[in-house]
Design a binder for these strands. Structure first.
Length: 263
DNA sequence: ATGACTAAACCTTTTAGA
């Protein structure tokens, strides 16, 4: 089965591309769960009918103009939770649901749009740090009851220099600071694995490229979209890859999908 | 160049993204 994440930067604009992409994946077995970020639409605008017609179920948590997340799936998600319980937040950033794991068990999927943080000296960075602490507690709680768990989405954090097109110029800038990476490591320390690095990857693999200055053509990007898996899923992982094809579309999102394959 | 490009809204200008 396949689990994917994609920051679409407006689902209104990108809906045809998402449907096309899901259709294209059918040739290789199809995507079971697709986590979307930056819907940029209120709940009443969510295009449920279009996904249903394509054969998919959906759970969503929208917000006008900014943020917004969804889980698109073959089977209906259950035990849906929106945002982080106990953490008051104006923004719609997290959606969690349970799915069949294809082997008679269940798979808990947390789809998240991590705060950008803007700059290390900004109020938004302070919020990012608070949000990361709250997320850590939520993931820890969920892992206690769901051995097969996936934390995926737009993390807005790079792991290390390998994830950065110019690590010297971008040292200590947003997405690359020690503080952000310490929080990311804390999530790993809960018992999660960066599935992407379980496999050989092309050099300079990224999941986001700036729209400006031919960022994609020059491969000036960052790897900030991740699929983290719990220990119970590690042996089932057979591949993880960035799919750069949709980034070559006309009017693309600035992010590309990342796809995890499980046996 | 606190720029470049894209999207949304309070829309010919600002805010945010990363």
């Amino acid at each position: 089965m396949k689990i994917a994440t994609w920051n679409v930067n407006s689902l209104s604009v990108r809906l045809p591309q998402v449907l096309d992409w899901l259709q294209a994946q059918q040739a290789e077995g199809g995507v079971d769960v697709l986590a979307l970020q930056e819907l940029k639409m209120s709940d009443d605008k969510f295009p449920l009918a279009a996904f249903n017609e394509a054969g998919y179920q959906a759970q969503w948590f929208g917000q006008k103009t900014y943020n917004g997340v969804a889980l698109i799936s073959r089977h209906a998600g259950t035990d849906v939770v929106k945002n982080i319980p106990g953490f008051a937040d104006e923004m719609s950033r997290v959606i969690t649901a349970t799915y069949p794991d294809g082997q008679g068990g269940s798979l808990r999927v947390i789809g998240a749009y991590f705060p950008n943080g803007q700059a290390p000296d900004s109020d938004k960075f302070v919020y990012k740090m608070r949000w990361l602490t709250a997320l850590h507690d939520w993931v820890k709680q969920e892992m206690a009851t769901h051995p097969q768990l996936i934390l995926t989405g737009d993390f807005n954090i790079t792991f290390d220099d390998l994830d950065v097109w110019d690590p010297v110029a971008l040292k200590d800038t947003i997405h690359c600071t020690v503080q952000e990476r310490t929080h990311l490591q804390a999530l790993i320390d809960l018992g999660l694995t960066d599935s992407f690095r379980l496999f050989d990857q092309p050099e300079k693999s990224y999941s986001w490229w700036d729209y400006r200055d031919f960022g994609f053509r020059r491969n000036r990007g960052l790897r900030i979209d991740h699929v983290l898996i719990s220990a119970a899923l590690k042996d089932r992982a057979t591949a993880c890859a960035v799919d750069k094809v949709p980034r070559k579309n006309e009017r693309p999102s600035d992010h590309a999908p990342v796809v995890l394959s499980l046996a």
